[in-house]
């Protein structure tokens, strides 16, 4: 494993911890999209089914369990926790899952590394992860005041994606036969979705003003 991949995983972990900590300590999920969190729970469930069939490393299995556990806990908090769920504004978080999930199923059936159950699910999880942030970005755009933690959560997720791209470039040059078009293209699309957010995030940071996305 190279340093970019490790740094990417750590930023991913940090993003999830920031979000869980925010929800757990201030007992509020204001500004957090339940739709995005549910999509991530689906992404991790479909991608990490291989913990039952393949063993890669202890690190790998451990991280998979963390991402599965944290995504389900966040969904549980927003849906079931008696205080947290009151802060969830479902009238703002209106993105429909089905418009993202259905096209990803079709795409995964058409474009995959092998037409097997596991490979189709793998491809599906990559396509869905690429677009899963959309409900969150739409919600941020609608929210007048984005709190620091929600902003940091999205920022860390974007950094994690960018580091994964550097990791793929590194692996392409250092490993033989490391060519994964499906992973690369969906990963690139995913990272590009953060470009706009990054622009405004740095603007607000430079001018020391509260982050606000234009409608």
């Amino acid at each position: 494993m190279n340093i970019f991949r490790l740094a990417g995983d750590m930023t991913h972990l940090a993003s999830v911890l920031v979000l869980l900590l925010k929800i757990h300590t201030i007992k509020s999920c204001a500004g957090v999209s339940l739709k995005t969190q549910e999509l991530y729970a689906i992404v991790f469930t479909t991608r990490y089914l291989d913990i039952f069939t393949d063993f890669i490393s202890l690190y790998n299995t451990f991280m998979k369990l963390i991402f599965l556990g944290s995504s389900y806990s966040i969904v549980w908090y927003i849906r079931r926790h008696k205080i947290v769920r009151r802060s969830y504004d479902k009238n703002q978080d209106t993105f429909r899952h089905v418009f993202l999930i259905l096209p990803c199923i079709v795409l995964a059936l058409l474009i995959n590394e092998k037409l097997t159950f596991k490979e189709v699910l793998w491809a599906f999880s990559l396509y869905l992860e690429a677009v899963a942030i959309l409900p969150q970005l739409v919600l941020l755009q609608r929210t007048k005041n984005i709190d620091n933690l929600t902003g940091q959560y999205v920022f860390l997720l974007g950094v994690y994606r960018a580091l994964y791209i550097v990791n793929w470039i590194y692996r392409y040059f250092t490993e033989t036969h490391f060519v994964h078009w499906i992973t690369w293209i969906s990963g690139l699309v995913q990272t590009l979705l953060y470009a706009d957010f990054f622009y405004y995030y740095f603007q607000s940071w430079k001018t020391n003003q509260k982050l606000q996305l234009p409608a």
């Binding site: 494993m1 291989d50 393949d54 890669i56 790998n60 998979k64 991402f67 793998w122 990791n167 490993e175």
Partner: peptide, 10 residues
């Protein structure tokens, strides 16, 4: 090397 498996990333 197990790390060269195509699905070794998270």
């Amino acid at each position: 090397d197990k790390d060269k498996h195509s699905h070794d990333e998270l």
